[in-house]
Amino acid sequence: MPNITATFPIIGYVRSPLRQKFGIPRQPNLVAVPSVIEFLPPFNNPQAFDGIEDFSHLWILWQFHQNRIADNEHFSAQIRPPRLGGNEKIGVFASRSMYRPSNIGLSVVALDYFDPKTGQLHIIGGDMLDGTPVLDVKPYIAYSDSIATANSGFAPQKPATKTVIISEFVYTKFEQFIHQNSLSKKDIAIIEQLIAQDPRPAYRQVLDNRQFVMQYKDVDITFLQTDNQTLSIINVVKVEN
């Protein structure tokens, strides 16, 4: 059989406060991150979205645009999912790893609203990086897309979260950013939820006093682990361009 490839148009791009891969939730809907999909012409025609607000959730097909594109010579049959501690291997097709031959992601998100004046689709709960190319949008159909008896393999439940401590010093800096309109109170809550997911690589999730930095919008948030179940935000600074 010949090696067949397919080409898909990019219909738009995600605009998200998540500016780097580190810190992105490992699955959609773990954190209510607000994002916007900006559609390119001619896909931004408002008529293409007639009826979309009758649905509460949408499927987004998108591209892992910052990954090395796999080919037959570099295909990795197995990966180490973080959920299994980053050591145990499973087949790539038994995972939702970003490192896969098609380089395509699939996420279900909540629909906030569609703005016909701008052609923008506002969504909540995405796990997509700012600038992610979008390939398609489809409505989520509860009776067929939600299977109550489904077996979720090695991930039967949502991952446990850690406690996040924000010092008075950091709260003061957050308030400064709110005053400057760089962040909102809602952003602070989202940042706390993102860090509670513990975005560190599985092999780094140990008590070793190492500091990690997660970018959200135009700020860098520095945090470290202070005990087995606690992460502490110790600083927040404006990103230097």
Rank of each mutant, 00 (worst) to 15 (best):
M1P: 09
P2K: 14
N3W: 14
F8D: 09
I10W: 00
I10Q: 00
I11V: 15
G12P: 11
Y13R: 12
V14I: 03
L18I: 08
Q20A: 11
G23Q: 02
I24Q: 01
I24H: 02
I24Y: 01
R26D: 07
L30F: 05
V31I: 01
V36F: 11
L40Q: 05
P41T: 15
P42Q: 09
N44A: 08
P46F: 03
F49Q: 03
I52V: 15
E53M: 04
F55L: 08
L58C: 02
W62R: 07
Q63L: 04
H65L: 02
N67W: 06
N67E: 13
R68S: 13
A70T: 07
D71C: 07
D71F: 07
E73Q: 13
F75N: 06
Q78V: 15
I79A: 09
R80N: 15
R80T: 11
P82R: 03
R83V: 14
G85I: 03
G85K: 03
G86M: 05
N87K: 14
M98H: 06
Y99L: 14
R100P: 05
V108Q: 12
V108N: 01
F114V: 04
Q120I: 01
G126C: 12
D127K: 00
D127F: 00
M128C: 04
L129I: 12
D130V: 11
G131V: 03
V134L: 05
K138G: 02
P139N: 00
I141Y: 03
A142P: 11
S146E: 05
I147G: 01
N151G: 01
S152T: 08
S152L: 10
P156S: 04
K158T: 14
P159S: 10
K162M: 14
T163V: 11
T163P: 00
T163D: 11
V164I: 07
E168A: 07
V170K: 03
E175C: 13
Q176S: 11
N181A: 13
N181W: 05
N181D: 15
S182G: 08
K186T: 13
A189S: 12
A189N: 07
A189T: 13
I191C: 09
E192K: 12
I195R: 05
A196Q: 10
D198W: 00
P199C: 07
R200N: 06
R200P: 09
A202T: 06
R204S: 14
D208W: 02
D208T: 12
Q211F: 00
F212K: 04
F212S: 15
M214L: 10
Q215S: 08
D220P: 01
I221Q: 00
I221C: 01
T226D: 02
T230D: 07
L231Y: 03
I233H: 02
I234C: 01
N235E: 13
N235P: 00
V236M: 05
V237P: 04
V237I: 14
E240P: 08
N241R: 10
